[in-house]
Design a protein around this nucleic acid. Sequence first.
DNA 1: TCCCGGAATGTTGACGTCAACATAGCAGCG
DNA 2: CGCTGCTATGTTGACGTCAACATTCCGGGA
Lengths: 344, 344
Amino acid sequence: MPTATGRSRRKAGPSIEDVARLAGVSAQTVSRVSTGADAVRPATRARVLAAMDQLGYSPNRAARALRNGSFGTIGLLAHRFERTGEALTTKAVVEAAEAQDHSVTLLHVSNPEADGWQHAAHRLSHQAVDGLVIIRAEQATPDSLALPAGLPIAVSDSRLVGYYPAVVADQVQGSQDVMAHLLGLGHPTVHHIAGPADSDPAALRAATWQRCLEEAGIRPPQVWRGDWSAESGYAAGQRIAEDPAITAVYCANDEMAFGLMRALHEHGRRVPQDVSVVGFDGIALSEFSSPPLTTVKQDFHRIGHELVRLVLDQLQSKPGLSRDRVVVSTELLVRGTTAPPPGR
Amino acid sequence: MPTATGRSRRKAGPSIEDVARLAGVSAQTVSRVSTGADAVRPATRARVLAAMDQLGYSPNRAARALRNGSFGTIGLLAHRFERTGEALTTKAVVEAAEAQDHSVTLLHVSNPEADGWQHAAHRLSHQAVDGLVIIRAEQATPDSLALPAGLPIAVSDSRLVGYYPAVVADQVQGSQDVMAHLLGLGHPTVHHIAGPADSDPAALRAATWQRCLEEAGIRPPQVWRGDWSAESGYAAGQRIAEDPAITAVYCANDEMAFGLMRALHEHGRRVPQDVSVVGFDGIALSEFSSPPLTTVKQDFHRIGHELVRLVLDQLQSKPGLSRDRVVVSTELLVRGTTAPPPGR
DNA sequence: TCCCGGAATGTTGACGTCAACATAGCAGCG
DNA sequence: CGCTGCTATGTTGACGTCAACATTCCGGGA
């Protein structure tokens, strides 16, 4: 059974010794040149550089990592990271890490049940990376992860917030803005298509929606349950479109809003004249639905950068500099899918 | 100049020696248990496993990499990988790599001008990863990359195809299907919103569009030039919407189709009654525009898996098994944005 | 002239792992 | 009862790098 064990010793590239021999110096001098640390006579340095160039030498990162105990690598643990929010965060994490001379190793958690996360965490265990960023670990709990102690970790919205340094978007403010906007337009009530029940951000958005209604003296209607996908928004939309009493829907993300709008469109209900729709996330395409979607924009770029900062601060033992929880503000973008209710 | 060099020796986790001592065996026996390779008596194995568990041991990957000359890591070089196609390909690459016990290190090329790619290639230089996957290296040329010789590489659609083993989507077939569909509906001609001029897939789609028109005896109209973004599709749409003679537009990707549709909508031109629109990629949201977008679906999942296979085949020196070029077929999805031209 | 001191360079060893080889233990058999 | 031929385990060394320490070299001052 020759599975993946068939890895044999690869032919090595030129080593520091080869360069040293060619340049007529010791390995240590080559090391000095390559790390740029110590004093080396300009003539010697030039000779070493020429030798490096000639051999196409580049330092072996495994050996460096072994020597230094540091990989220059941050692990990124995510589930379904091809989704817009995750992809944008990932991009920002990679950029920020690069700016700090770190690279990013991706680990995709295929089955988000506890086992998948644990398996993933184990693979990226504390010797493989210097730190770990976890984005949207929806089902995971600190126990189910069993991460090695001492590994610097930063998480974004998820159940893990509170257990590890975290970056969270201001779900509450964003949801309040949405509700103020819709109720301000005169809608008698607002329906909500929520994200999956095991998602923390989804729960927060739903709770804020509910609280805002209650504070306005309105009894919250039954919540519609989606799973972030446009399909689920479409499915909920099939029922919503049949109820002429519904004039405003707050969707927990943009994809579900797209699904809802298609369902409304198919049932001949006009957006925004008959029904107002609001999304969440501010994905690039949200500006190009017809009409463009009113939504709450998240600053994924900043979220990614803050996540990296939290991890690297721990690495460099600057606990004083890193607050436990960074809140990134959100912004309501009022575009074309919201209007006063019909007959008003 | 203390740049990022301030990394000190991290406190090490438990080593194989610690486990050996606790279990009362030699380090080699621990190694055998941890690699699962050799024969170890069940009682001994159990003792070692218990010791590993108690200490929270996990093998040091740097040491392993140094020993084996292999990192178990594939590098992924991409520009703007947060876009749908890139993100889906990335996901598939990560999954496929994981299935082969490899992890994936992401490298984001921020400025795609030659320098950015070269810088990126240098960072991932041949000792850091066992192989390299390059997706959509639009501006890069083999010379501008200067990749280390002997590093297994696989590329997807880009100018690099032909220089390295490649996986390409069947742009030609997909474009032909689009043109046959639209012309078959009776449209007198078809306009095209192309991708950026330096993109190979964009060029291929545009060339096929042009050839199909010519073969039908139609003189191709001026091409509209976009940059893949919905914004650019919207910008082209502002002009297209003003020309009542235009009844069908083939967009080189879905995002631009979304932008076009919003522009058409704003100008009161109905899709598909007045204008037919076709996209390319088959992103998840394309099914949830109103009406749902007719598009050419690419199998990003398969593309990612083939890329990994090409790299790993080279790693295991199976040149016979890996063709130089894998073509992944595309599929026209006829949905709601295409219809016969008005008055027919 | 000789010695001192600092700068440039060299030598040694250790990081953690695992392949190769070495040895110990033990069952089976004549 | 000793020998053969396994199987289970132990020992050694090397992968490439770099910090710590050691050495060499050289100019300048006494």
